[in-house]
Design a protein around this nucleic acid. Structure first.
Lengths: 267, 267
DNA sequence: GAGTGGTCTAGACCACTGT
DNA sequence: CAGTGGTCTAGACCACTCC
C-alpha cells in the first residue's frame, strides 16, 4: 500500500501531473481529470490529490473552481520598466492631448496595444486612515480621493494589475475634471492629471514586497488563492517635497517582472 | 452542528486565532494549542483547523514543525534601498581595504551592525546552463564560478536573504584571490572584487518577481512553505556593455521592502 | 514517554459546472 | 441532470519535539 521513498505521496502526484502538463499530455484550457480519478490512478486518497494539486495551483500551472479543475494556459511574463517609464510619463505630461492619447503607459513597456486592453476605473471618497495620513503628512481623517483601477488583456479577463491610488481631495478638486471618473483613462495618466493643477513630480519612490494573494485579488488577477502577488507601494513627490500621490499596485507575482536600471557614475 | 454564515468554518478558526495573537493572548515564541484542542474548541474537524492555520502560516503569523506549532515573533521589515546602495558600493570599490572593511552592504540600509550578522558563503564551479549562457552571452557549458551566500541575524537564525551569484570563471580567475571562499566576506563586496581585475560596473539591472517559497528556501529564510518570496534577478553590466555578474536574490516577501527612487528631470 | 504535527484513509454533503 | 471541486467528518500511523 505504501511505497515510501522518503517523499510524501502527494509530491509524486504533483510532479507527475506537472510533467504531463509540460509534456503536452494535458492541454491548456482543458479539463483536469477529476480528483477522484486521480486518487484512483495514483492510489492515494482524495486528500493526497488535493495536497498535490494545491502546489500546482499556487505556481499557476492549474486552476480550479467548484465544479471543474483545468490546466492554465502558460501566461506571458509582463515586464514593467519603471525607471524609464516614470520619466517617459513625465515627458508626456506637457504634450498635447492628441500626443498623449496615442499610447498609454501599459503599451510603453509591453507589446500590447491599447485595443487589446480592457481598462476599468472607479472613484470614491475616503477619509485618510493613519497610514495614509502619515504618508501624505496630513491629519487622520483628511478627505481623500481614492481611485481604483484594473487593466486586463481583452482576451482572457485576467487583470495585469490592480491599483488603489490616493490623492488629497482638496488638492485635486482645484480641477473638477480630475474628480470625474468618466474622463478615465486620462491621456497621459496621473502625472498629466497633476500637471493640470500645476504639480510637477520630482521623484517617485517604489517600495516592493510580496505576500500570498487574498481571495478577491486572486479572482481579479486570474491566479489562485495562495499564489504570490508583488505589492508595489508607489509614492510621488513633487518639487516642493510634498507627497502628491500614493498608490498600491498589486501584480501577479509569477507573471510580472518589475525592472529597475541603476546607472552608476563613471570613474 | 453547522452554524453556516456563508463563510467556511476554517475562516473563523483563522480569524479567531489571528485575533488572539494580535490581542496578545497567544505570545510570540509560545506554543499554539494543539490541533486537536483547537478542533474541540471550535467544534470543527482536524482538517478544518489545518485549513485555517495554513493561511496564518502563509502570512507568517504562526509556524509549525512536526511535534509543535508556535506563534511567530513579529519580524521587522527590512528596507533595502537599491538605487542608493549600488552607487555607494561602487564608490567604495576604490577605497582602501580599511575603509571598506568598516561596514558591509547590509549595514548600509539596515540598522543592523555587522556584529549582529551571521554570514555564510560557499563557492563552487558549474557549467553555464542555457539561461546563464544567454544572460552572459557565452556558450552553453562555459565554466562559471557560482557563489552562494546567506546572511542572517545572529539572534534568530532566519536568513535575511539567500543569494546565488554567478561569474565567468576565466574572467575572475585573473585574480586567484577571488576564487578563495576563505576571503569572504570580501570587504566592499562584488564591485570591489571586480575592481581588482579592472572591471568597472556601469549599471545594474534589477528584475523583480514573486512566487511561493520552496521547502529549502522556507527553511533557510525562516518562513513557511507556501509563504511568498521576492525574487530579484540582478545583472551587473560593465562599461564595455558586457554582463560581468548575475545573481538571483531570494528575499522573504512579507519581511522585505526593496526600495527604488526614480529621480525625474526638472522642467 | 507523552504529545504534537505531517501525512494518509474513507467516507459525506452541497454549490457549482457543463450539458 | 450528472459530475466536479469546496468543505467537512472521524478516524489512523509515524516522525518528531519536549520533558
Amino acid at each position: 500500500m505504501t511505497e515510501r521513498d522518503g517523499r510524501p505521496r502527494y509530491a509524486r502526484v504533483a510532479q507527475e501531473i506537472r510533467e504531463e502538463i509540460l509534456a503536452g499530455g494535458l492541454r491548456p484550457g482543458g479539463l483536469l481529470p477529476s480528483e477522484a480519478d486521480l486518487a484512483d490512478r495514483f492510489g492515494v486518497s482524495p486528500t493526497g490529490v488535493r495536497n498535490g494539486i494545491r502546489r500546482l495551483r499556487e505556481r499557476g500551472l492549474v486552476g480550479a473552481e467548484q465544479g471543474r479543475g483545468f490546466v492554465r494556459a502558460p501566461r506571458q511574463r509582463l515586464r514593467r520598466h519603471h525607471s524609464e517609464r516614470y520619466q517617459w510619463e513625465k515627458d508626456r505630461a506637457r504634450q498635447t492631448a492628441e500626443v498623449r492619447a496615442r499610447t498609454g503607459a501599459t503599451e510603453f513597456d509591453t507589446d500590447l496595444q491599447s485595443t487589446d486592453l480592457k481598462f476599468h476605473a472607479e472613484y470614491s471618497e475616503t477619509a485618510a486612515c493613519s497610514e495614509l495620513a502619515m504618508r501624505f503628512d496630513v491629519p487622520v481623517g483628511t478627505r481623500m480621493l481614492q481611485r481604483d483601477y484594473s487593466t486586463s488583456c481583452r482576451e482572457d479577463d485576467a487583470a495585469l494589475s490592480v491599483v488603489h491610488s490616493y490623492l488629497v481631495y482638496d488638492v485635486v478638486a482645484t480641477n473638477p475634471e480630475l474628480l470625474d471618473v468618466a474622463r478615465e483613462p486620462y491621456p497621459g495618466g496621473t502625472q498629466s492629471q497633476l500637471f493640470t493643477i500645476g504639480i510637477e513630480v520630482d521623484r517617485i519612490v517604489d517600495e516592493l514586497s510580496a505576500r500570498p494573494a487574498l481571495p478577491e485579488e486572486a479572482g481579479v488577477l486570474g491566479i489562485e488563492v495562495g499564489a504570490s502577488v508583488l505589492v508595489l507601494n508607489k509614492t510621488s513627490i513633487d518639487v516642493t517635497d510634498r507627497v502628491v500621490e500614493y498608490s498600491e499596485v498589486i501584480l501577479p507575482g509569477e507573471w510580472t517582472e518589475v525592472v529597475y536600471t541603476t546607472e552608476l557614475k563613471r570613474w
